[in-house]
Design a protein around this nucleic acid. Structure first.
Lengths: 135, 135
DNA sequence: TGTTATTCCTATCGACTTAATAGGAATTAA
DNA sequence: TTAATTCCTATTAAGTCGATAGGAATAACA
């Protein structure tokens, strides 16, 4: 299950991509249109900004805007920022790898093999879909 | 990320499948071999039993045994018992469906479409792998 | 210069979940 | 009768999630 943070973040990105006619899009607008807690959304957009997906403008008529075209924004990047690891166990994660403590022989671990397959097929989707596909 | 419960449950099933030479396998044996908290494992095996994957025998020399052949035990069934929904959002779950509250038009939801694709590809794996493949 | 609207930052909170633990009842083999 | 095991219920500590609060910094504009 993905966290609400991830769902909200995805919806916000879609909203910004759809409504960006030159002007930045404001938190308030997004939160009201998508029915997302304003303060929570605030922290999500901040996170997307600090990871380089969004830019922002402060002050009156400020807001957020995409720093790349929707075609350049891969779902794998978005999910990793919002949700963290794509893999189902840390020991098969490419970007958030952690060694398996309780496993004697990781190479022959049945769970590991299964989860590698799941990771590959999920990654196949996330790597080949961009924000443009969601619009 | 899958819960430890799921990982432990999978490992336990593999262990039982490998070590079932007619006699039931005991919690203690599994917990020591796989380095799993005994009491926690106890509740996991109980859950697998109540969902029809395992049978048990009480008392001295008791333990757990598979109720089907490893070939008959699909990963999709195991994951649903241990982890719950396979889908990443309740509104695309086949077995644990829940309506999306904050979504105005579910059919045109961008997140939904993406998560349906992920669900399909994950399910493709879980439906076509059995316990036998893990051994 | 002052006002208003916005992002930015930090801190906190309640509810829930997870993993583990505890103790003992029920059952079975010998 | 004893020892070994599953079964059942309850509790707990730690962590996470989603949300909230308050105000600092910044920008537009009259």
């Amino acid at each position: 299950m993905i966290a609400k943070k991830t769902k909200y973040g995805l919806k916000a990105l879609v909203f910004i991509a759809r409504n960006s006619s030159g002007n930045p899009v404001q938190i308030k607008t997004i939160s009201e249109s998508e029915q997302i807690s304003r303060k929570f959304l605030e922290s999500i957009l901040l996170s997307l900004k600090s990871h380089g997906l969004l830019g922002s403008k402060k002050g009156k008529f400020g807001g957020y805007y995409l720093l790349k075209t929707p075609e350049e924004i891969k779902m794998s990047a978005v999910i990793r920022i919002l949700e963290g690891p794509i893999a189902m166990v840390p020991c098969v994660s490419l970007n958030f790898y952690e060694k398996c403590e309780d496993c004697k022989e990781p190479d022959h671990c049945a769970v590991r093999n299964l989860m590698e397959a799941v990771r590959d097929s999920t990654l196949e989707i996330y790597n080949n879909r961009t924000l443009a596909d969601l619009i």
